[in-house]
């Protein structure tokens, strides 16, 4: 069968937009971005992997979107004098996967977020600022004791996350860079939710000279958290066996279609053990 349209058929029309109308700016300096964000109901847009679907579902109505992806200062990966890996906030997951060789566990995490389309648009700054309770990057930042550098201050990861979809970022404050101290050993192990492939439970284990840090995403109602009992146990004995005897963390766990709170708590333990094993 060939064409079916009648003679009055016209050519293809452009894909319909579904979002409410908004203004759009794409500044190339941080100052201009901050200025643009001063408008009422203006919202920053980085890779848009959460915001654009939200807009398409008409669940948000910003007056203006300010793209952060054309600002050179926000892009790229480098190593600071103290050896930390510095990732620009607008660096995509694909760029981190390819360019964070100095921190292999971080590169591996980035390379396993979503699918190639998501990885080529989504950014580390966007992910951290959004603080989705099932996102991967918050676990990396928290387990690494990273520093989140914004246009106005430096925030320790321990202080940055403030519950599901919430951070301590002020209105109009934007992330510029994320500094990751590079651990001796590390691994991120993600157990995927079958439908979304977000983390049902993801555990990032990082071993530093002064101790082990363990951060858990996907599991808890308050979002990413550190499992301190496991950190203590692993700091004295960095082996999967050190975790197996622990009680599961007592945080309030998420219960939904894809797993009960008990299941998630159990997976935290399993994935921590696997991360330790994978870290070697």
């Amino acid at each position: 069968m060939k064409g079916q349209g009648r003679s009055k058929a016209t050519g293809p029309v452009q894909e319909e937009t579904k979002m409410y109308a908004f203004d759009f700016e794409r500044p190339d300096t941080i100052d201009d971005a901050l200025k643009a964000l001063g408008a009422e109901d203006a919202q920053p847009l980085s890779g848009g992997q959460t915001l654009i679907p939200t807009l398409k579902s008409r669940l948000a109505m910003p007056s203006k979107l300010v793209s952060l992806t054309a600002i050179p200062e926000l892009k790229g990966i480098c190593t600071s004098d103290d050896g930390a890996l510095c990732v620009g906030a607008a660096t995509t997951h694909a760029e981190v996967a390819a360019g964070a060789g100095a921190y292999p566990a971080l590169a591996a995490l980035a390379g396993n977020i979503g699918d190639p389309a998501v990885r080529n648009r989504g950014t580390i700054g966007g992910s951290l600022a959004n603080n989705d309770p099932s996102a991967c990057y918050p676990a990396a930042a928290l387990a690494s004791g990273a520093t989140i550098v914004t246009n106005s201050r430096q925030i320790a990861a321990d202080d940055f996350f403030d519950g599901m979809f919430t951070t301590v970022l002020d209105e109009g404050e934007i992330i510029v860079e994320v500094r990751f101290p590079v651990p001796q050993k590390a691994s991120y192990q993600k157990f995927e939710q079958p439908a979304s492939r977000f983390a049902l439970v993801g555990v990032f284990v990082a071993k530093y000279p002064d101790g082990v840090r363990v951060a858990v995403t996907g599991a808890a109602e308050d979002g990413v958290f550190r499992w301190t009992q496991a950190e203590t146990a692993l700091s004295s004995d960095f082996s999967a066996g050190a975790v197996s005897g622990l009680d599961v963390p007592d945080n309030a766990m998420i219960g939904d279609l894809h797993g009960s709170p008990e299941y998630r708590a159990h997976l935290v333990k399993v994935m921590t053990g696997r991360a330790v094993k994978a870290a070697g």
């Binding site: 064409g3 079916q4 349209g5 009055k8 058929a9 016209t10 029309v13």
Partner: peptide, 10 residues
């Protein structure tokens, strides 16, 4: 291919 959504009438 010519799908239904490809059909746009004047």
């Amino acid at each position: 291919g010519q799908y239904t959504d490809d059909i746009n009438l004047r």
